[in-house]
């Protein structure tokens, strides 16, 4: 969670907001298995069908896109196409994209039930991609302080998540 991903053509950036392992068929809930197994590996080995029945899905919140070679931190005019390939961003891409932090506002207002968690995770992860992680963190916190100027309690709890 909080990682930055992107699609190709059109180039759209997004932050991972929810990751889940689910059954492919939603009418068949996952049951607990392996009462007698010694380790988790044993469970997988004894139930080889699991890998076919379960899948990992993640939801992302769009944080910006590239328009004529310029990074725009607002929503793109069109969503990415279905079946677009999604790539995890390299540290260089992360540091380039997070040079500006307008995406924080986008994330805070995304309507995600745990938006603060996403923002905190995003800043923590992005910081490690920057050459000066502390400077980036301080800059991000000041940006947050401006965004959440009217809600000190929320801001303070968010800052504590980011605080090294």
């Amino acid at each position: 969670m909080g990682g930055l991903v992107r699609t190709d053509s059109p180039e759209i950036y997004a932050v991972v907001g929810r990751v889940a392992t689910e059954p492919l068929d939603s009418t068949r809930p996952v049951l607990a298995r392996g009462e007698d197994a010694d380790s988790e590996e044993d469970v997988i080995r004894d139930n080889p069908q699991l890998a076919r029945l379960l899948t990992a899905r993640f939801e992302v919140y769009i944080a910006g896109h590239v328009e004529n070679g310029v990074i725009r931190q607002y929503l793109p005019p069109r969503p990415p196409r279905v079946h677009s390939f999604v790539y995890a961003c390299s540290p260089e891409e992360v540091s380039l994209f997070t040079a500006r932090l307008d995406l924080l506002r986008l994330l805070l207002n995304s309507g995600a039930p745990h938006a603060d968690e996403i923002v905190g995770a995003c800043i923590r992860q992005a910081a490690s991609s920057h050459e000066q992680p502390d400077d980036f963190r301080a800059h991000a916190c000041r940006t947050l302080a401006v965004e959440l100027a009217g809600d000190v309690a929320r801001l303070s709890s968010l800052l504590r998540r980011i605080s090294p």
Binding site: R137, A138, C141, R142, L144, A145, V146, L148, A149, G150, D151, V152, A153, L155, S156, L159, R160, I162, S163, P164
Partner: peptide
């Protein structure tokens, strides 16, 4: 001054310089 009138009633982790630095000059 502060941007949020509730600031004076909200407990702030004063021993965390990081949080204090972020609040100072903004909120």
């Amino acid at each position: 001054r502060s941007t949020d009138p509730r600031l004076k009633y909200t407990p702030i982790p004063v021993d965390d310089p990081f949080v204090i630095d972020s609040l100072q000059g903004t909120v």
